[in-house]
Design a protein around this nucleic acid. Structure first.
Lengths: 346, 346
DNA sequence: CTGAAAGCGCTAACAC
DNA sequence: GTGTTAGCGCTTTCAG
């Protein structure tokens, strides 16, 4: 009876394939996973049947016993134009290793990020790759105990149970500020983010914190500590911190501004343009991330490039080796490079 | 023996919960799915245990019998700045209905898109939502036979087995071109895409095709058919079609250009700026999608807004009702609206 | 209203 | 080398 049914439009499973090829389901499973101990004859018989029947292994079923060959990639939000490169880099190496990448978008809220990570684990994805998560080291360690975890854009150098891949944000910020100083600017401010954001306190490892450190270091080295000022701006209406517009209208304007991200820098460059503040003559600006918009000739925004694609690639490689069994943590730091354009002067 | 083990750090399953609550696994399952026929006492007992044990249902296991409460969202590529709004809109309604959204990125290649859709089905996701896929109607129908399918940004009005949600691209293009005509421009060209792209022939339903129709209609209505010209540009090096730079240097320059997408429009506006071609005095430009960059004051690009968030929301609603059992197709068309800025003149 | 039991499609021992 | 078999964690009849 069951036999009869199978002949019609029934779903083709590993059993259908096994019957068709005249072998056991175990044999099929082995071929599927390139497992050790299958003769070429058997393999080709199975492969033929798979092809013929259009068989596809059920990831759901796989997830119950073995691996799913899929990894979850968590993005904090989609708006940041810096992310596509990271994703592309990661997909490149995951794809080559035959892993599918499924992306979750966190809407910049820790609670959503967590629920997404949980879901990825519920789906039995083989690993989770986080990009600039708004989570604390403790929370991250919690997840790392349950699944291979790699984090991009969040400094946690002492983490023992997961890997981190970062651009050297301190160095990047320092380079940007040094360039401004070298161009003759002295009153250099910085824009950053308000420490307390959404539903979580800002972690130590957040990139903007590191960039603040780099900024302050550069100012100090140049003996400009007393002129240093960090504007910790709010991210949205209702959040803590002043709006960006304050920077242009309150008190004496700085000569130059180093923005923690192109998000701020682009906003600022437009604000300046709208108010007739000339860039860089009246106000020099340097951003971070070297987003596509920064590179538009009409914008000409100097910005620190942190090689997004490389971050993605390295993280994917780390993930792969972790899935293979590595347990010693890896903390990779890439060198950023300032891309100079009009906005930062000569 | 098994009992003992369970007390330690064993994975908590539906069985653990059942034991803890002193009920059957079936009861737990029903509570989980809000199924019919559970007393309030039983429900609260179960809920308490779930909470206490931190139980999370395995999506993988669920996928083998029932639904996974997850839907796959396929993006053609990540670079397009128009997509975040669509995703946000879709997530908004899916989230409210307690569905997780997992995103796949297609890298603008039909073969990758297909493999991603297959993976989503392998994972037993409850439905697949495609955004601007580079697939033909036939291929789409093939998938629709196997899973609930909704498509955004691909016109397939006669599809019987899946839903489509689109902006009225013909109307949007017409509005853009009419605005240019109303401003006094006559030599109005359009940029579009080369028909044959990557690994698939361009489908009839592609949005740029519809926009070409709208452009030609507007030109004809104004008696300007003989001045109409469509530049079908290549997407990358090596593809078919001329590069955008040709538009500025070959033959007499048009007075205005309607670009099928902001991607072209932004490139063009920058090209013009770099070469000292004034916008809009020497060349008026209108784009499509009203991306964030178009709205930057410094750019000031007029562009057709197609309400991305609404597209996402409507598509998600369609998906939900389809998952609930609807089989009659829905083809939704939203009205776009031109956002006028400096680039299109008075 | 509640529970027992039969799988869903696969993998991983373990036999042969 | 290859086949047998026992589950993975859930949903879903079907009895009680």
């Amino acid at each position: 009876m069951t036999e009869k049914i199978r002949e019609t439009g029934e779903r083709v499973t590993i059993r259908t394939v096994a019957e068709d090829a005249g072998v056991s389901t175990a044999a099929v499973s082995k071929v599927l996973r390139n497992a050790y101990g299958v003769s070429d004859t058997l393999r080709s018989k199975v492969l033929t049947s798979i092809e013929k029947l259009g068989y596809r292994p059920s990831t759901a079923a796989r997830g119950m016993r073995g691996k799913t060959y899929s990894i979850g990639l968590l993005l904090t939000e989609m708006e940041n134009a810096f992310l596509p490169k990271v994703v592309r880099g990661a997909k490149e190496v995951f794809g080559a290793a035959n892993y599918q990448v499924m992306i979750g978008v966190g809407e910049a809220q820790a609670s959503i990020e967590q629920s997404l990570i949980d879901s990825m684990m519920d789906m039995r994805m083989d690993g989770v790759l986080l990009v600039a998560p708004r989570l604390t080291g403790t929370v991250l360690a919690g997840y790392a105990a349950k699944t291979p975890l790699v984090v991009i854009g969040h400094h946690e150098p002492s983490a023992e149970t997961f890997d981190t891949v970062n651009s050297d944000d301190v160095a990047g910020a320092r380079e940007a500020v040094c360039a401004l100083i070298a161009s003759g600017y002295r009153d250099i401010h910085m824009t950053s983010l308000s420490q307390r954001r959404f539903d979580m306190p800002a972690g130590e490892g957040e990139v903007f914190t590191m960039r603040e450190t780099g900024y302050l270091a550069a100012m100090q080295e140049a003996g400009l500590s007393d002129r240093a000022r960090i504007w910790r701006l709010r991210e949205r209406e209702g959040c803590e911190g002043p709006p960006l517009t304050d920077l242009l209208k309150v008190g004496p304007r700085p000569e130059a501004v180093f923005c923690w991200s192109d998000i701020h820098a682009l906003e600022l460059i437009n604000l300046a343009w709208s108010r007739g503040v000339r860039v860089p003559e009246d106000l020099a600006i340097v951003g971070y991330d070297d987003t596509p918009a920064a590179g538009m000739p009409i914008v000409g925004l100097s910005s620190v490039n942190q090689q997004g694609a490389d971050l993605g690639r390295q993280a994917a490689r780390a993930m792969l080796s972790r899935i293979e069994g590595r347990t010693t943590p890896e903390h990779i730091l890439l060198e950023p490079a300032l891309k100079t354009r009009r906005s930062s002067g000569s």
